[in-house]
Amino acid sequence: MSVEALVNGALLGGLYALVALGLSLVFGIMRVVNLAHGIVVLAGAYAAIVVTRVVQVDPLLTFVVVGPVVFLVAALTQRLLLQRLLGHSLEAPLVATFGLLLVGQGLFTFGFGTAPLSLDAPWGRSGVTVLGLTVQAVNVVAFALAVAVVVGTQLVLTRTRFGTALRASAADPATAGTLGIDIPLMHALTFGAAAAIAALAGIVYGTAFSADPNAGLPLLVLGFTVVVMGGVGSVPGTLVGGVLVGVVSVAVGGLLGPVYSPIAVNLLLLVLLLVRPRGIARPAWLGPLRIGKAPA
């Protein structure tokens, strides 16, 4: 295993972070595990495929259309469906989003068939050489996007009034509510933004790899892994988690063989859950999390 391979893996971790960020946001702010998250990522890829069939543009440009559409659909889903389940228990939103996963999978099979489809872009099939290391251009794009989105999200959360309101509604929804913060609106915006980021991840994923209706669950598991490794609800943590997954996969694959990569990643996930159930980098502003019980 070479330095080149490790760098490539770390850069690919940027894509993993993009996939995971939305999951982490929804979990951190709404305390909902969105089992349909992988489907949202795929929705981004499929929507971009539809757009590029109509107008031949670079897949990334389609985000101008795909992003707002996915944002709107997700925000409405949250407002009309999930919000009413939030007061209940852990399993209510979990089960509902699982239903969304099934529906999405059915819709994609119906609309696009089961064969993989992919987005084509010059940066999806070329390499770049920096400092004598040849890496895939798509990984560089993914990493740059991930850094931009992670920094942007972190700035919104920590430096804006909106972010303050969001953090308040996550830390103490009851008090935030009495202070006049419209919590359902906060949740809808969070869910929409998380979905839009997932859609962006989907566009990059579809360009780097491909999209097929059965990829929803593996993408969700990937997201989970990254979220847990980076610390649930921590925005910068997703980047750490993504890079960690990328590097561990490459290192184990190179040393022991690729067959052991998924075993190693899952094992690491389990060990991390046990020794640091709150992840590597957990922000103080989230306060103590009691995920077993949702706040009233």
Partner: peptide
């Protein structure tokens, strides 16, 4: 040692490892 969602995630990791 895990509870709530962490148990769910941990158990799915075990299932995926077993399959692999």
């Amino acid at each position: 040692r895990l509870s709530g969602v962490y148990f769910t995630i941990g158990s799915s990791a075990v299932a995926l490892m077993a399959l692999a």
